[in-house]
Simulated scan of single mutants.
Amino acid sequence: MWNATGGWSDGSDGFLMAPGARIVGRAGDSYKMSISIPTEEHGFLGRQCPRCRQSYRVEADAHQGLPDDAELWCVYCGHHDDPNEFLTQQQLDRAVRAVEDLGVQLIGQELDRAFGGIASRRPRHRSGFGIQITYRSKPFYPEPLPGIDEEKLIRVRTCADCSLRYAVFGEHRFCPACGQLPPMIVALDALAAETARLDLLKQLPAQTAAHAREQGVFTRLWVDTLENLVGVVEALGSAVFRGTVADADQRLRGKNNIFQRLVDLADLFVDAGYPDLRDRVDAQQWQRLIKFWATRHVFTHNDGLVDDKFLAKVPASTARVGQRLTITEELCRQAIADTEALCRALVGLTKP
């Protein structure tokens, strides 16, 4: 149920419940309650992972339409369990309030029985062994249930496999309904995040940007971009190869970090009977990618200082051994664009 409205509801056994809560059944001393959970303005229902405690949103109608035996996935860590385990703290507070309201009335009902009913509101006295007890029954009127006011939506996604619409607040790897996202979707998300980070740098106030640039913050972030691009291709290449090559484990034995090396990556697929990756991207793009990967390598392993290995991979470079390479925003944006083309070509290798 979503967004119940109205006044107090007269539930089972005459209990008064706040709008959005009602008693729908009873078995002995056990009561079954229905408690509405309001959605946000776009019709999305908040969810919170019981394992990592991070929050996301699921379109309420789709969530309500899930099969009875369906599990819900955390979009961030991949934990999956009964959908009822994914209540947010505010939703739980709302449910607890409704249960407390019922509890107060149950206790009052038992006290009324113990002290002779509630037909009269006059104080009743019971005494024994010199002890006098005074009890006065009074009606209970529940306060409105706590509302739901959680973080606003920014990023809404639609799963390519099951079409579920959901919203996330950070990097994620899973669909709430069908689990692991396709490797290409993960790669494109990661590339979009790199572009967004570069865009954020351009939005810094001038004085802040100047101070950050002077401290080397920009350069380090640009180096991180190249490092992350290599990681994107490594993860995608591994997922595609392991997902399509029957004897992948045997072919990869002893070839550590092979998915980080572009030439070896291309040769790996060729040896497994697939087209040459180098033929699936523009020749100039391939040469730029080789340079980007080599640049990342010297920054990761040699503080950006040119060595003989770099010059062997990038013979057209005008840099000399011992000089430090420079990185720019423009170089990073070009690297992102070329990496996306490489990722698309990589996935296309295994398609008929």
Rank of each mutant, 00 (worst) to 15 (best):
D82K: 10
R157L: 03
D101N: 15
L145T: 05
R124T: 11
H125F: 15
D303A: 15
K138D: 06
H301R: 08
F140K: 04
R94V: 04
E227H: 07
I37N: 09
E40Y: 02
T5I: 11
R333D: 02
A294Y: 10
N302G: 05
P50W: 04
G117W: 10
T244R: 15
S9I: 13
V104L: 13
H125Y: 15
A95D: 01
G216M: 02
C52E: 04
A114P: 01
R136H: 04
D199N: 13
H301P: 13
G108I: 03
R253I: 04
V104A: 08
N3C: 08
Q284L: 06
C77H: 01
V298A: 07
L191N: 07
L198I: 01
C175K: 12
V75Q: 11
K152E: 15
G6E: 05
E71F: 08
D61P: 00
P352V: 12
L102V: 10
D247R: 13
G322L: 06
F15Q: 07
V168D: 05
F169V: 03
L349F: 08
H211T: 15
V24F: 05
K202N: 08
K291Q: 14
I148K: 09
D264Y: 11
R220K: 11
A95M: 14
G322P: 04
V24G: 11
S55H: 04
L87D: 10
P205Q: 11
E330N: 04
R261C: 00
S120P: 00
A312P: 00
R253H: 13
I118K: 13
D279H: 06
D69R: 09
R47I: 14
E41Q: 14
A60W: 06
T219V: 09
A177M: 06
Y56N: 12
T326P: 00
V58T: 08
R57N: 02
L92E: 12
F169C: 05
G11H: 05
R126K: 08
S30D: 15
F241Q: 03
A114K: 12
E329D: 11
N228Y: 02
L198C: 09
R173K: 10
D161P: 00
L191T: 03
I148Y: 03
T244G: 02
K313Q: 15
T5G: 08
T318V: 05
P144D: 11
G273M: 10
E59V: 00
Y31T: 05
L262F: 14
C159V: 13
V232A: 05
D10K: 12
G20M: 02
A27F: 06
W8E: 15
N302D: 13
Q132E: 15
A21W: 00
A95R: 15
K32D: 10
G28M: 10
P275S: 10
S12A: 07
F241P: 06
A21T: 06
F44I: 01
L289W: 03
Y274A: 12
R278M: 03
F259N: 04
T195R: 15
T39K: 09
C332E: 01
V281L: 07
D61Y: 01
C52N: 09
P275E: 08
P176N: 07
P315F: 07
L191M: 12
C343T: 09
Q64Y: 10
G147T: 14
R296L: 03
Y76V: 07
V233R: 07
C159M: 05
V217F: 09
